[in-house]
Nucleic acid binder design. Structure first.
Lengths: 356, 356
DNA sequence: TGAGAAAATGTAAGCGCTTACATTTCATCC
DNA sequence: GGATGAAATGTAAGCGCTTACATTTTCTCA
């Protein structure tokens, strides 16, 4: 069959990848057989299967993903868009998510939105174009268009790291507001009355918003005015946490407890506290959120909200796979709320005597 | 043109994505024009362009990536395989890499190999099948087959985080061995003679191997026997660093300085030191490698090797883009060696008096 | 005003794969 | 031994896009 050779010469693509046809030729069978051999080995006789695999190996053949997706209308690829890869907040959950997918023969494509809904919208678009069968998203804040895209294409998606009782969307996560409220109540019980918060920018980040509200809820419960609560917004990073902390303590009325929106900010705060000669928690208490590894190694250890990251990732994967397989039909899959707990370490203590 | 409608009815795929043809129909032009509109707007008249974009918007059209790649033989997608996403070691460099790519209209696909060459080989395969135009890899250790794959398909690739003078492969990174030697020399100059190393498993990880060799080099230069050097191998994680540290100090002859293969291990070591009541650096010195954020927030701060992560990422991107564009022809692109420096913080001090 | 060039658009042939359907092969049984 | 059906294999039609080439429209200028 000189046709094949002709094509090669014509296009002049010397060292391009071998195709199904090349394999078929080498093995002396049709392309259909090769394809079956790769996708449904049972439907091919032992003998030919061996020949074909031999040819595959010799040629170093790798099926062209795009062509396969085009023909099969399935990619076995899921996408995940997380706000950042710069720190470990999402790492553990994502790792678990991906492990679970892999066990089911699904590849994960990850991209990060830098906490920008606009960027996220582009990524949704890109992942859909790439044929993602389903998507994992973080939190509820995003552009309406992102949702439109998902819906009009009928792409299964679940929202993690957050749970909303009032929206008809499948999510798997925890109640950020309540979690933070619980922690803030503990702080208040220890006698603190001058709280302050270091939060991520709340715009476009419902987790951050809810956590702040949680603190407010606790204040109200103690009969305090939430409007008095100083809140500094700054992107998640250790150095930003440190800066924000310094700003807080050098302001007129220094708080006795600083609640941070996550562990990364809190780690920055703790480290700056030491540099400023403030003892934690004797002079000032600091709390975090997430319970990532960093919470253990700062000194003192961070009292923080423990989030079941791996559990969340695994369940998200299973849920998404079930949705993709149509196991829920048209009914929306049920959301799953996970429980969080408080991990006590050394950074939260009673209010200093002079402030009591 | 009722053909299109027929197809839809026939296949019954009600809410599948709109195709180029749908857009063309709606805009009353040919598919070619729509395609041009999207890829080479200059070749289309103002008026039609508007109509087409209108149709695109109304339909929420997203070009099918697989089909495009198939037809255009280009994906504008690069791949990166990093050993782990679990901690921040590669995060900053990768972020910079991806930013630089994005500015050039290139999408980045990331996957992680869990430090396993076998897994990495699979990922190379997968990324090639997905049509990655070029690949970023970490370090030189990988299966021969991985290299074969890359070479036979003619996929441009650069190796980062490591530099090898004796292989004809384009790499961009630093001399791990020499960097670690420099640090170890500083340790020795401070009077330490009982060193120990906590390293990542050296098998399949040339960076880890070279760093250990660097310590040995320094010992030799001081006339000491490198064979006496205790080395504990353990995967990068804070808790593993802590465990390894405890093992070292509770062994018969406790070292006066522990050199860690990276900052994550070192952070674990420092935190365990405190738990064990050992003062750093008064009782024992600890050093790291990488200078990631964590190095600043442990107490005392980590004396470590500063690696120019962002610079490495940016240069890797530029190099890879140039290679993809054929700017180097068949000649291998030149490797780039970056310089590292030592960042002094508090964790390295003079040898304790009783050991001097 | 009309010939010729330039610009805009259309036509249709694939890209590499899957899969419905058609055909061949082969074991089975009366 | 030949009809029968199951198993194995082949044939060929797309999947949604790009792009070389053909055709039409528009512009330019003598």
């Amino acid at each position: 069959m000189p046709e094949e050779k002709l094509r090669r010469q014509r296009t002049g693509r010397a060292n391009s990848s071998p195709t199904l046809e090349d394999v078929a030729q080498k093995a002396g069978v049709s392309t259909a057989t090769v394809s079956r051999c790769l996708n449904a080995p049972a439907r091919v006789s032992e003998a030919t299967r061996k020949q074909v695999l031999e040819a595959v190996n010799q040629l170093g053949y790798a099926p062209n993903f795009g062509a396969r997706a085009l023909a099969a209308k399935r990619t076995d690829t899921f996408g995940a868009i997380i706000p950042t890869m710069e720190n470990a907040i999402f790492a553990r959950g994502l790792q678990a998510f991906q492990e679970e997918l892999e066990q089911n023969g699904i590849t994960l494509l990850v991209s990060s939105s830098s906490y920008s809904p606009q960027l996220e919208e582009k990524q949704v678009h890109a992942l859909i174009a790439r044929g993602a069968d389903a998507l994992l998203l973080i939190g509820h804040d995003r552009t309406p268009k992102s949702y439109d895209l998902l819906e009009s294409k009928g792409i299964p998606h679940v929202i993690a790291w957050s749970i909303a009782h009032d929206v008809p969307r499948t999510s798997i996560g925890f109640d950020n507001r309540n979690a933070m409220k619980t922690l803030a109540l503990e702080v208040l019980k220890l006698g603190h009355r001058d709280l302050a918060v270091i939060s991520a920018p709340r715009e476009g980040n419902d987790r951050a918003r809810e956590r702040c509200q949680g603190v407010a809820d606790a204040l109200i419960q103690f009969g305090l005015r939430p409007t008095d609560l100083p809140i500094i917004e700054t992107p998640y990073s250790i150095s930003n946490g440190a800066e924000a902390f310094q700003t807080l303590v050098s302001s007129g009325n220094r708080p006795t407890a600083v609640l941070c929106g996550n562990d990364v900010l809190a780690a920055g705060a703790i480290s700056r506290a030491r540099e400023l000669g403030l003892r934690v928690p004797d002079d000032i208490s600091i709390t975090g959120f997430d319970d990532i590894e960093i919470a253990q190694i700062v000194s003192p250890g961070l009292t923080t909200v423990h989030v079941p990251h791996r559990k969340m990732g695994i369940h998200a994967a299973r849920l998404l796979i079930a949705m993709r397989n149509g196991e829920y039909g048209d009914a929306p899959a049920e959301s799953l709320e996970l429980q969080v707990t408080i991990t006590w370490r050394g950074s939260l203590g009673p209010v200093p005597l002079r402030n009591a």
